[in-house]
Amino acid sequence: MEALKFENLPNAVAELQKGQSELKALLLQKAQPQPETDNPITIQGVSELTGLTVPTLYGYCQRNEIPYSKKGNRLYFFKSEIIDWIKTGKSKTLKELQLDAEAYLSNKKKGLNYEK
């Protein structure tokens, strides 16, 4: 590496800044979690994930109650879809139901005209 002269200092600083910004971009890209590819799983994998039996899962598939893909005679499932499907069955807590009822009643009262 040759010695820097005062006249070349602005170019050297600009080159260092460019290299630093490229390194920063690469580090940020590496730091961001890469989306995991959602590999298909078999019905046995879904059974292990959900705790449901294979015949029960076949029944859900027959009634189109569970998300699945079919290729030929094989059923495939995606873990993210199964987890989303499980989350849709969440029941509201008593506190959530009470808040919903209060919000509904307050909106209902605003729309009514009371005559005296």
Rank of each mutant, 00 (worst) to 15 (best):
A25Q: 11
K90N: 11
E48K: 00
Q34D: 14
T37C: 14
K71L: 14
I41D: 06
K70T: 06
K71C: 12
R74F: 14
A25E: 03
Y58G: 01
G51F: 05
P55Q: 04
Q62F: 09
E36M: 15
Q29G: 11
T50P: 03
N73Q: 12
Q62R: 07
I83D: 10
F77Q: 01
D38V: 11
I86Q: 05
Q29M: 10
P35C: 11
T37R: 13
Q20M: 15
R63D: 11
K70L: 08
S69F: 15
K79H: 10
G19I: 11
A25W: 03
Q62D: 15
V54P: 00
E15I: 13
D84Y: 09
L9Y: 04
Q34I: 15
L27T: 08
L23Q: 12
P67A: 08
L23D: 09
P55T: 02
Q20F: 13
Y60L: 01
N39V: 15
N11F: 09
V54H: 02
E36T: 15
T37M: 15
E81P: 01
K90H: 05
K79M: 10
E36H: 14
V13W: 01
Q34N: 13
G19C: 14
R63A: 11
K30Y: 12
L9A: 11
G59W: 04
K24P: 00
L57Y: 03
L9K: 05
F6S: 14
P40E: 10
S80T: 15
K79A: 08
R63E: 02
D84P: 00
Q62W: 09
Q62N: 13
N39S: 15
I41C: 00
Q29H: 06
K87G: 07
L52A: 06
P35V: 12
P67H: 02
K70E: 12
F78M: 07
V13E: 07
L27M: 13
V13F: 04
S69P: 00
Y68C: 03
T42P: 00
